[in-house]
Nucleic acid binder design. Structure first.
Lengths: 188, 188, 188, 188
DNA sequence: GATGAATGAGGCTTCATTCAT
DNA sequence: CATGAATGAAGCCTCATTCAT
């Protein structure tokens, strides 16, 4: 029941927004009453927090595996990171969009936690880039902070338009982007 | 007065969100009464629509100049586009974020107009990329649609973190991104 | 201009009701601004009062002529009264309906005036009936109060449905009603 | 609770009018909060509709019994109809006045339903009159439509002034009116 | 005479939340 | 576990009215 409520909320929060979705909407979606909602959640905000924690937790655990895979070099790890993000669109897109869009609606305490984890994720990606620089994969004079943010921009933005069921698969899109990031679009 | 109301709303919508900002908040921000608000706007939605139309109108007019500047080649036009976007952060960041985040809250009719114009902007950028391919600037086998979306991802994402007053200027950031997009980060 | 405002209000008050008609509606109807309205009337209520006074004044003056016409007997005077009311539908219907329906919205002081005049009108009709009884035109044991109210019911009710442009003219309707009131519908 | 809300509204709508009565007034009347009102009614209009449907439903069901009573002739049925209406003043006066006065405030769809039922009621009374003509009770050349409207005028108008607790009882008033309608007031 | 700007009060409605059962 | 009833705060919007020009 709790999971059903969470799933319903994720759907509705993504579609209409957190504030625009009422507890009634959520309960109605799975045919229970508001009372039931409050049996499982202390408040609407607590539910939002759960969604956020779950999403960022998932992201960090996935990232953990990528970073600690000693069999892959920096380029591969960058590839794996972008692929992980784009691949997640299939079942995490809604959570991701809620994550980015509804941060504001978290209580300040949770917001801070949230931002820390988000920064951690980004810093970890930056770590991959810096490793690549150190190991001579990437150019020496990169502004790794800006580059990392650019790479994440490419990947994150795809949450707003990419259709995993369309002509281009997630693997293909990852390859297109990695090729651009690594080698650029200039004619050689 | 109308402009003061618009400015106050842009500030508040960006900070707290459209739904989370009450007409009272807006009126209070500039020390007038709600009645005054409704003297200038038929509804809160109409104000949001005005903000959207103004922003996308600005974007398209800037793009127009870039596209029609015959003295610049495709690479330059791409540079100009990215620079225009990043440079606009200084005074259009809030509008831009509202534009992307509060689309949902537009009436369906305006939403459609909005999406059309947004698509037009993207297609125009894609036009620059395709021109570059045709003229031999860029690689022949580019998936121009995906690449364009990637480029816009890099630029748009910066609206969420870039601080024009920080260490890196808008010109520098544009150069960093154009270098990545054109030549990649791989060590040559 | 004042008369144009009055005419527009009568139309709108009848159509939508006093409270449901805004000063804006009235001003808009004749393409002036609210300010203009307040140049001619101290308040919306004052306008309503004017409409009421005008209507009841008209009624009483018409009644005055009927009562004082010494050439007509009680039956004729009753006929003239009913005819006057039904005939007035053509150009006074709206005022009349406002008169009956919007009394509540008058300030208490005007309401009282209003009811007094209304009662006076009714008492005058009752006077005609009583004269008829005294003079032997009408039955002796009539409850003249109730009968008068019944007669007025017949006439007043027609304001809600009678169409002077329809098959039955105001003269004909008056005759039909007078015949019923005087002789009944029973087969003789 | 729902019934208490309805009763309170009927009282207030009659006294002050639908538009002039706020939901706050209704809730306050029975010492609950506005929230409670909206727990039971989707809107103020829905409540008005309920009142209308209830009233006209009552009227039609009463009429049904009268029409189908084969033991009564046309004169009796006319009597029963007028008595039913006047007798209902005691506990339906307010509903009735709301019914006639607040039609405008119904949503168009309900308004239409309403008018149909109202017309049906009138047509049914007209049926009684026509039956009387056919059976030789009433005069042959009656304009049954106009006469019916006149009879209803007499009865309906009494809702605006008749006091069932006064000197004249509802039975007596009915007799007075039936006598006038059937035999007229002329001295024989 | 007429207008446009501004106000403030009040109305309808939604909604997160609580609580007894 | 789950419900139904009730609350109270807050939000959007309308409107009569005032006033300086």
């Amino acid at each position: 029941m709790k999971q059903k409520l969470i799933d319903a909320s994720i759907h509705l929060f993504d579609e209409k927004g957190f504030t625009e979705t009422s507890v009634q909407d959520i309960a109605g979606e799975i045919k229970v009453t508001k009372g039931t909602f409050y049996y499982y959640f202390k408040s609407k905000q607590e539910l939002l927090r759960d969604i956020h924690l779950n999403y960022i937790g998932y992201l960090l655990s996935q990232q953990d595996e990528i970073i600690n895979d000693t069999s892959r070099d920096s380029r591969n790890k960058l590839h794996d990171t972008v692929f992980m993000l784009i691949h997640s669109i299939r079942n995490r897109r809604k959570s991701a969009r809620i994550f980015f869009r509804e941060m504001r609606n978290l209580a300040p305490e949770y917001l801070e936690q949230n931002m820390e984890k988000r920064d951690l994720f980004r810093k970890n990606v930056q770590g991959i880039v810096e490793e690549g620089v150190r190991k001579g994969c990437f150019q020496e004079d990169l502004n790794t902070d800006m580059i990392t943010r650019g790479i994440l921009g490419v990947a994150n933005w795809s949450y707003y338009w990419f259709n995993p069921e369309g002509d281009v698969s997630d693997e293909e899109l990852t390859n297109i982007y990695l090729e651009m990031i690594l080698n650029g679009i200039n004619k050689k």
